[in-house]
């Protein structure tokens, strides 16, 4: 199970990287979102998988009893997802503005800043 999931995560990374390397602006943003998803999955899988038992104490429990899923990666993941959302939303809007200003989909048109003026 873990191995399969690792491979799927790896594929997510791969596809996201492929999109990021694409020169289409839209693909770039897709790539960034997928990349965020992949890192989240990585974190989740790396933190260890426990089927079913969530980290919520039942009414009669005072302390958690094994087996239960490690709540720490979950909490981290939650934070990371939210932060990722903030970044992605901003990135999406940036892309939109770039479209508006440059009237182009092509990232290669955005290579003026680094020119060396003589």
């Amino acid at each position: 199970m873990e191995a399969l999931l690792s491979i799927v995560t790896g594929m997510l990374f791969m596809v996201s990287m492929y999109f990021i390397l694409h020169r289409h602006l839209f693909k770039l943003i897709l790539g960034l979102i997928l990349f965020g998803l992949a890192t989240n999955l990585f974190m989740f899988v790396a933190g260890g998988l426990t089927r079913g038992n969530s980290a919520i104490l039942k009414q009669d429990q005072e302390v958690a009893i094994e087996p239960y899923a490690d709540p720490v990666p979950q909490a981290l993941l939650l934070t990371a997802i939210v932060i990722g959302f903030g970044l992605q939303a901003f990135a999406i809007v940036i892309i939109k503005r770039v479209y508006q200003v440059y009237k182009s989909n092509n990232l290669d048109d955005l290579a003026n800043n680094d020119n060396i003026e003589h």
Binding site: T9, G10, M17, L21, A38, F42, V45
Partner: peptide, 15 residues
């Protein structure tokens, strides 16, 4: 090639 290398690295590390 770059993407595959990257994906493979991540899988490897994750395992």
């Amino acid at each position: 090639f770059v993407s595959v290398i990257f994906g493979a690295t991540m899988t490897y590390v994750l395992l």
